[in-house]
Amino acid sequence: MIETHDHISSAFNNELFHLNNTLLEMGRTLENMYEKSINAFDQKNDAASKEVISNDEKIDDLENSIINQIQVLIAKRQPMAVDLRVLVGCTRIAGYMERIGDLISSVNKRNITLIEYNIENEKKDIIDLFSSAMKLFQKSLDCFARKDFKLAEVVRSQDLDIDKQYKYFFNKLLEKMSRQSKLVVPGTHMLFIAKNLERLGDHATNIADSISYMATGEVKAPSRPKISE
């Protein structure tokens, strides 16, 4: 837990509470988009994918609202120590979430293209990757909701698993594509989807890192252990 006592200024407390709620809403919206994307991919539902893409606007709006709130808070409260770190952390988290939104809509754009191809053999691997990234993202959201920076360590370690999973899928698909030329077009799209999901996992980790920064003031080294592609 980061917070110790309430501020003397109750207005300050309320403003922080509102900021927190806006971030949680952004997280929930992303979660929702993400779940829809899995189904859309699984069922080749282009209408659902289009809906998810249109939802990205809402994410952008929420991000703007968060940045505005933080801006006003800094101007009004001149935050120090933990407050300062929370606001800096929230700024970063909002940025990561916005990029996660972009990644999800990019995945869905490729899904719409993939509908006309037969990808039954590769589907399962992608869905596995989807759910791993989903779990990671949900965990980082939990981590934020509970302000639990110990959970952040867990997120960090699980990101490695996704990287492995991606690497494995990448090599496997690349090999298939070299043998079956009809797989080149859908395979490329699937490679991008997999890459996006891997990036999504990275951002989820970044969110967790931001939370542990908020708690401790330590900025984690950006060079996280990574498996080379």
Binding site: T4, H5, D6, H7, I8, S9, F12, R77, P79, M80, A81, V82, D83, L84, R85, T216, G217
Partner: peptide
């Protein structure tokens, strides 16, 4: 350090306006 990440809870409470 004092103003970004103080070691003591009391310091933090004071500089962030949480003091009773």
């Amino acid at each position: 350090e004092i103003f970004t990440s103080p070691n003591e809870i009391k310091t933090q409470d004071y500089i962030t306006g949480r003091f009773g």
